[in-house]
Structures are given as structure tokens and as C-alpha cells.
Design a protein around this nucleic acid. Structure first.
Length: 225
DNA sequence: GCATTAACACGTA
DNA sequence: TACGTGTTAATGC
């Protein structure tokens, strides 16, 4: 898919005035990143706002003792980097491609100009930041209060947020190991928990895939915290 | 009791 | 072959 074509699929883009759309179409470039290489590294400065055209990537952080945590999954339709661009700060996370990725890149000057001058663009950014903020608050709640089952359910559901993951359907391409990084649980516990959820008819597990079968029941599980 | 790590066998791409 | 998954055993809070 071409970058310009990809932009048309983004809800925030369609809400912009014609001339801003035209400008973005003209300056947005494409980049390919092979699986398991980095989209960007910790300490770098971003010179683009980056959207995922296809593929899956993760924002990860490795602790000093070598343990890895995933904080954000990026899937087709996700955009990231606005935090670093707005603050003009070095990245505090790395972003690594889980599969081959195709990226859309909006140059920093254009991003900043839209941020400063376009109400429609600023609103779209606020909506995205708001959704992320909600995602993080939810994650914190479950880190402190949830049991393993709820934390796994919560991690899965957070990947279905329509603002952050507009291109995601009920089938998640995600290894159990990655769910562990996301939920802050060991792979073994994630495996046991997913099997319990499958037995209850809430999800179906396949190799490197999780399908949501009963969304209302998953939600109920999560809302009981 | 519940979660963690380590270890091993087996499946899948 | 390399990586993900299913399972068990030992250990810790």
C-alpha cells in the first residue's frame, strides 16, 4: 500500500481540511523495516511521526537486570512518536519490529506545523494521547489489583482499542511470550491462563495467534476489578 | 496458593 | 534450524 493511500484509511486524516490532507500526501514517505530490527532506538531523536502501514511492532524497554517489558503494541493504523516530537526529547523506549513492517513517515517540521496551526490535527492528537493515557492507567490498575487471568484479559483487550488500533479485528497476531511481556507475567502463566480462557469459551488459541470469541465476557472479567 | 525460573520435548515456519 | 508452545519440577513470597 502506498503511503498516500494509507493516510486515507486513517480517521484523523479524513477529518483534516483538504489543503492539510494534500500537504501530508505530498510529504509523507515510506520506510521498510525487517522483522526483529529496530524502528528506532532509545536515546535517539525522532525526525518523523511514524504510522504502521502493515506489520506489528512493539515499544519495549529492557531493565538493567535484563528483563524485558513491552509497553505498547503497534499494529496497522497505529501512529507513534508524537510524545518525543512535541517534547523534542530523546526517545525513552526502543521500538522493535515483530514482523516485517512498512511505515509511513511524516517529517517533523510538517508534524510541528500541523500541531501548532491545525485545530483538527491537534484534536486528533489529543484523542490519541487520551486513549494511550487510558490504556496506561488501566494497565497500572491491573498491575496492582488484577489476578493473572484479569491481567491477560486486560492486555488482550487493550489491543482492541479502536483509536489506537483501528486496523485490528478479533484475531491478534501475537505470541504468548509477547503477551507475557505486555502483562508482566511469565510465559508459563500466560500459557496456563490462556488455556483457562479458551476452556471457558472466551478466546481461541492458535500458533502465534489469539482470537477473541466472547468479547462481552472478556470485558466483564476486566470490569470486575 | 500462586507466581517465578529452569529445563526439556515437541511443533511450526 | 530457530523460535514458539506445552509441561513439569524446584523455589520463593
Amino acid at each position: 500500500m502506498a503511503a498516500a493511500e494509507f493516510l486515507e484509511t486513517c480517521a484523523w486524516f479524513r477529518r483534516l481540511p483538504q489543503q492539510e490532507q494534500a500537504r501530508l500526501r505530498a510529504v509523507t514517505t515510506q520506510r521498510k523495516v525487517a522483522a526483529s530490527s529496530y524502528l528506532c532506538r532509545q536515546g535517539e531523536r525522532l525526525d518523523h511521526w511514524i504510522g504502521i502501514i502493515h506489520g506489528t511492532a512493539a515499544m519495549v524497554c529492557d531493565s538493567a537486570d535484563g528483563r524485558r517489558s513491552t509497553y505498547v503494541i503497534l499494529s496497522p493504523g497505529s501512529w507513534f512518536g508524537e510524545g518525543s516530537l512535541i517534547k523534542d526529547e530523546a526517545l525513552r523506549f526502543e521500538s522493535v519490529a515483530k514482523t516485517d513492517c512498512q511505515l509511513a513517515c511524516v517529517p517533523r517540521p510538517v508534524f510541528m506545523d500541523l500541531y501548532d496551526n491545525s485545530v483538527a490535527f491537534s484534536h486528533a492528537l489529543i484523542e490519541q494521547l487520551n486513549a494511550r493515557c487510558g490504556q496506561f492507567l488501566g494497565n497500572m490498575m491491573f498491575d496492582r489489583m488484577g489476578n493473572a487471568e484479569q491481567r491477560v484479559a486486560r492486555s488482550i483487550l487493550s489491543l482492541l482499542d479502536p483509536v489506537l488500533y483501528p486496523g485490528t479485528g478479533p484475531l491478534l497476531q501475537l505470541s504468548q511470550e509477547e503477551v507475557g511481556y505486555l502483562a508482566g507475567l511469565s510465559r508459563q502463566v500466560v500459557n496456563g491462563t490462556l488455556k483457562k480462557l479458551e476452556k471457558k469459551g472466551l478466546v481461541e488459541i492458535q500458533f502465534r495467534q489469539i482470537s477473541i470469541v466472547d468479547m462481552p465476557a472478556l470485558r466483564a472479567l476486566v470490569q470486575s476489578v
